[in-house]
Design a protein around this nucleic acid. Sequence first.
DNA 1: CTACAAGCTCAACTTAACTTGAGGTCAAGC
DNA 2: GCTTGACCTCAAGTTAAGTTGAGCTTGTAG
Lengths: 148, 148
Amino acid sequence: MAPVTELTVGQVAMRSGVAVSALHFYEARGLIRSHRTSGNQRRYGRDVLRRVAIIRVAQEVGISLAEIAAALQSLPEGRTPTREDWNLLSTAWRDSLDQKISQLKKLRDGLTDCIGCGCMSIDKCPLRNKGDKLSKQGAGARRLLVER
Amino acid sequence: MAPVTELTVGQVAMRSGVAVSALHFYEARGLIRSHRTSGNQRRYGRDVLRRVAIIRVAQEVGISLAEIAAALQSLPEGRTPTREDWNLLSTAWRDSLDQKISQLKKLRDGLTDCIGCGCMSIDKCPLRNKGDKLSKQGAGARRLLVER
DNA sequence: CTACAAGCTCAACTTAACTTGAGGTCAAGC
DNA sequence: GCTTGACCTCAAGTTAAGTTGAGCTTGTAG
């Protein structure tokens, strides 16, 4: 099949809403890839748009570029991702996303519970109690957070 | 009523799992507060533990200290928060938390949908389509993200 | 009463994630 | 064929969120 139109860095920037400098940066970090024209300018395949979309959404919810990069490793470098490729990425991420979602819910509902239960002491707080298992199993850190 | 035991910075650090330096930092940023002994040492009320718990949980899900500080403004400085105080904080945050949760779900399920629908082009991706309303309403930025 | 762990302040360093700027190249329109 | 906007590289600056270290003070246990 005829190659779909390639995109310049400026076009990707415009379409994805990400600065050119950020795209350069992502490329340096291995999150996206381009090839070069004879004049050394970057050209991107269309799949870069979806990659950037995922990068931004993931970042927005507090996932670091390093983690995103790791997850994106499961996508192929050379070609447009297939259904199977997405499947790999999705399952690789599902756990950590589920975990983050449950943590957010806990924060949201935990606050509500604190109101409902009327507890004034941190020691009896339902938000706190979730972590108590943890506090017995290791150093002081991480309690109060959802179990990992 | 007799004042509940106050905590030193070291005790708060141990019980909350946060470094002493971080507590100093949070205080400098107005996220927590202490009073001083005659010897200029910090003393914290017990409510600081819950504050720190909330700070850490919120940070863990990608909320910045600035946002957390803003939310914590609704908690009283001088006394242990009442049910009413928590209520204010909770409702102030609920929207942004709900929004983040839905964004995370969109990321998680969006990936799955991409697999399910088999779409290979960003232009037809369900993850993408959510943002299309936005792309018509302003600059290029922010599309692909959940609407705010 | 003295040793020494725990505190204090302030400045400087660190990492992540970019942005800005300088100085130079490419390519599309007139 | 040249001008002008888009690109290129590389270095340095920026903001957030802390950490580390130096130099000095406090408070508690023996």
